[in-house]
Design a protein around this nucleic acid. Sequence first.
DNA 1: TATTGTTATACTCTATAACTATA
DNA 2: TATAGTTATAGAGTATAACAATA
Lengths: 176, 176
Amino acid sequence: MSDRAPRSRMLERPTRARSSVPARKTRTAAPPAEANPIDTRYLRTLMGYNARRVALVAIEQFVQDMAVYPFKPVDFSVMCVIVDNPGVTSRQLCAALNILPPNLVGLIQSLEQRGLIERRPHPQDGRATGLHATAQGAQRMMEARRTADAVEDRLASRLSPRDRQKLLELLQAVYD
Amino acid sequence: MSDRAPRSRMLERPTRARSSVPARKTRTAAPPAEANPIDTRYLRTLMGYNARRVALVAIEQFVQDMAVYPFKPVDFSVMCVIVDNPGVTSRQLCAALNILPPNLVGLIQSLEQRGLIERRPHPQDGRATGLHATAQGAQRMMEARRTADAVEDRLASRLSPRDRQKLLELLQAVYD
DNA sequence: TATTGTTATACTCTATAACTATA
DNA sequence: TATAGTTATAGAGTATAACAATA
């Protein structure tokens, strides 16, 4: 079409470094312009922009807190599905998380080599392989979920319990 | 740390193909399990998971509708900031959209070559360059914003006007 | 013939180091 | 010395085509 080949993506990442930043040095008085007087009001009316910023903040927090476990975000989501659906096939995993099959292969191999999952022949379909969490994998995931829950609590710290639930419902209403 | 080098990302993409798919082949009767009986209830309690799915659906729709314009999502957001902030510098753009400077260079060059923006010397700082939308660029953006607004309307079609506004507020409360 | 899992591979996106020219 | 813009490049994420084994 144009010049450089496009595809997906959008809006870039938020202003990061949320923890190490003064957060509001305009607190004294003066005009609210100084660090970032840039007008982004239009972008802020777009769901995609706002959703992406939340996703990126969430992932940033998740990666920080989950660093002690052997789980990247994508590992975590894959493990979640395997733990909750013993014997799930690679194909089902791909459909549920919308991972392309070639890109799942390495993830599964890595989890298996780390002793977190097992691959057993599928009882009905000789082509397929059933994925099962090992005892160690299941245990690690129990701990990891507690960490993920803690990240969630922190992310939602400015939301009332009612608004927090409402946010999940509204997001799901958009993509379901 | 482990084996394959990690970094960011999360949860993979949604079930895509929302438009071209039968959407419900269980329409006849039968149990609601068949295409995807996979349990993802836990992941659905996580804001990052839900936010990412919304962002990806939004981007997919955006890319579809915006294909007639020369704007990728990232081009669009960059142009938005330039149009609303004439003379903005690359550095400010990077801060506002959290793009790393080396990754902005190509975007700016492409927009300039397409006649959508101009680079003028900065009045105060000889190191910096002020970015300005050309008449053509501004015109294209006016049209593109209407398209973006139409995408928003479609995305929010299952939300009441009040809930739609509420969703933006809740998302911003998380990352602001 | 269609599907599962896989390999190989290309393309895109993101990140780091280092250079230049101005401040 | 520090900052704006840039170059080159590495690393991670995403995508398509094609193959063997099984249905």
